[in-house]
């Protein structure tokens, strides 16, 4: 190419769709500072407090007789609630995207409903339906299957607050992908299950994983709904509830050690989520792309 030096413009050209560099750097600085105060500072505070008495103390407090059952319960709840949610999400997304029926928009609104209900109100609803003072609740207790103040209630509350997560990720992806591939598989003689397992599932696996990830993060961290349903029973105490107990009993370091464990899980979730958004953007719903 020719020598360009003689034509170097005197003033740097700014594309008409860009802000002035000064404005740009001021905005970046403001956003960075604000996120540092609002998001990074609390995160750092958790780990600083958790390790205030050293690694060993923190580690020990997690494996204490008091803490361990809570960790176990949280894992159990997530292990039941998340697959339930995934199954519901897949079934609902299949029903909504593969069939045409009246009231589809209303059904989607109902599925989204838990997002706009306070977790405390969600817990309250479950207590009012299955509590020992109700007919159903009394019958279940009499038959040795109490729901409220026990594992089933906590699972139910957890499924409630995480209800839309998987379905919401799957529905847009399955709408985008259409029905042609499934129809092709059916004309080739594949059974319904085979079509689902070999055609649909591979297409939606990353979106499914994304939904499961969000659902799991919320399931392990839910506080309000579970607090109401567990009734503060020692046998029905999950990790977030245990954090509150430790905190109120002035065992700050232990509370923060457990908080640190949950914060670590949250960071792991974010990491996986970012990885999915970058590596499998094409197979996620449109709003999850384009970073």
């Amino acid at each position: 190419m020719s020598d360009l030096s003689h034509a170097t413009p005197a003033r740097r050209f700014r594309a008409p769709t860009e802000e002035a560099p000064l404005a740009r750097w001021l905005l970046i600085g403001f956003v960075t500072l604000a996120l540092a105060v609002l998001v990074f500072a609390p995160l750092i505070a958790i780990f600083v407090e958790a390790l205030s008495k050293g690694w060993e103390a923190a580690w020990k407090s997690l494996f204490s007789r008091e803490a361990l059952p809570a960790i176990k319960l949280t894992l159990t709840v997530a292990a039941i609630a998340v697959p339930l949610n995934a199954a519901f999400g897949i079934a609902a997304a299949w029903f909504i995207t593969k069939f045409d029926f009246r009231g589809k928009a209303f059904l989607i609104t109902l599925i989204d409903l838990p997002f706009s209900v306070s977790p405390v109100v969600a817990g309250l609803c479950i207590v009012l339906l299955f509590g020992a003072n109700t007919a159903i609740g009394a019958w279940l207790v009499a038959h040795g299957f109490p729901i409220v103040f026990a594992l089933p209630g906590i699972v139910l509350a957890t499924v409630f607050v995480t209800f839309p997560f998987v379905a919401r990720e799957l529905i847009p992806v399955m709408i985008e992908q259409g029905r042609a591939e499934e129809e092709a598989a059916l004309t080739l003689g594949a059974s319904g299950w085979r079509t689902f397992l070999t055609v649909t599932l591979p297409n939606i696996r990353w979106a499914l994983l994304y939904g499961v990830l969000l659902s799991n993060a919320r399931a392990m961290g839910e506080f309000g709904a579970v607090a109401v349903v567990s009734g503060r029973r020692e046998s029905a105490t999950t990790m977030p509830l245990k954090i509150e107990m430790f905190y109120n009993e002035y065992q700050g370091a232990t509370a923060f050690a457990m908080a640190g464990l949950l914060a670590f899980l949250a960071l792991l979730t974010l990491l996986l989520k970012t990885w999915l958004e970058n590596r499998h953007a094409g197979e996620l719903s449109a709003n999850r792309r384009g970073h």
Binding site: F40, E49, E222, G224, E244, A259, A263, L270, L271, K273
Partner: peptide
Amino acid sequence: LDAAVDLPFALPTAVAGIAL
């Protein structure tokens, strides 16, 4: 920063509460 925006979604509320 982009990933950090989602932290309030991922962090359990009780954890956020005692941290704040």
